[in-house]
């Protein structure tokens, strides 16, 4: 019953602003959908470590309720059995739903915006089991909040973002809280600042970080189960009118995690396809 209620809330509410056609593939960004715009995303996010590879096929739908408020629902499917730390930035099997609100929006010139977006949502355990230390834990829903702020322009992009996810306790078990952050720089070369009928390319440098707290199992915090990691890598976004393709790869810059518990995670990669269905409704 709790799960049904949580699912209902998730559908009624809405997710971190990952991918979704306009922004970086790993980190947080500010764009939201236009009013009446549907966005459909499907992508593959991979994590490879010394104990195997974990893949997440993530399907996401977004809808612009107003020009500044977007509802998003994410339904992932996971593959692989790598014993890796909890993550909120590189896949995972949780179903999520959130509402993103672009609460600050300053249009300063042609092609340039400075804006900030916050999102609040619910994360619900998916039907698939986790691997490693997270396997066998009783799972409960959680809440996820994100905040991103930055600049979008014809030439450059700069976004800073952070997120926090906290799961509820179930039968004295609790998944770790996750604090995540990102800094994204994007650039579109002059020769690629073309019109709407051509492919629109931009490249990003994505710096992301995550800290996951200790895992609670049977009321006991498992020692050495907390992790901290920092990742850096490039990604490229290509858009033509209403379709977008994006791919990126990251390597660890810093990693503080128990090798015996999680192995050694060495690479993250993602590819995402988007279809943007704009509203032609006239007032």
């Amino acid at each position: 019953m709790k799960i049904i209620l949580a699912l209902a809330c998730a559908v009624a509410l809405a997710s971190p602003a990952l991918a979704a056609g306009h922004g970086p593939v790993f980190g947080y960004a500010t764009p939201v959908n236009s009013q009446g715009e549907f966005s459909f995303d499907t992508g593959l996010i991979g994590r490879h470590g010394s104990q195997g590879t974990a893949l997440t096929e993530s399907s996401q739908i977004g809808y612009g309720i107003t020009p500044h408020i977007t509802f998003t629902a994410v339904l992932p499917v996971t593959f692989g059995s790598a014993a890796l730390p909890e993550t909120r930035m590189a896949g995972g099997g949780e179903w999520a739903s959130s509402v993103a609100w672009r609460f600050q929006h300053s249009v300063t010139s042609v092609g340039r915006r400075v804006e900030s977006t916050a999102s609040l949502g619910i994360v619900v355990p998916g039907p698939q089991e986790d691997s490693g230390v997270l396997a066998g834990l009783h799972r409960a829903p959680g809440v996820a909040a994100t905040l991103a702020s930055g600049l979008a322009s014809r030439s450059q992009y700069l976004w800073f973002g952070s997120g926090y996810t906290r799961f509820a306790e179930a039968h004295s078990d609790r998944r770790p809280d996750t604090i995540s952050w990102s800094a994204i720089y994007g650039y579109r070369p002059p020769r690629l600042r073309r019109d709407v009928n051509h492919w629109d390319y931009r490249g990003f440098a994505e710096l992301t970080g995550e800290h996951t707290g200790n895992v609670r199992s049977n009321g006991v915090l498992l020692p050495h189960s907390a992790t901290t990691s920092l990742w850096l890598g490039p990604s490229i976004l290509a858009i033509l009118k209403d379709v977008a393709i994006e791919g990126g790869i990251q390597a660890p810059l810093y990693r503080d995690a128990s090798d015996s518990m999680y192995g050694h995670e060495s690479i993250r990669f993602a590819i995402n396809f988007s279809y943007l269905k704009y509203s032609s409704h006239a007032y």
């Binding site: 042609v110 092609g111 340039r112 979008a152 992009y157 858009i239 209403d242 032609s280 006239a282």
Partner: peptide
Amino acid sequence: FGMDCAPCAHAIHVSMMGIKGVDTVKVDLN
């Protein structure tokens, strides 16, 4: 003001073409 990318222009194009009586729409991002 504020259009940074091709989808922005496409969104404007689609929205304007949805207005009854609009014949053609051209968007220059730069």
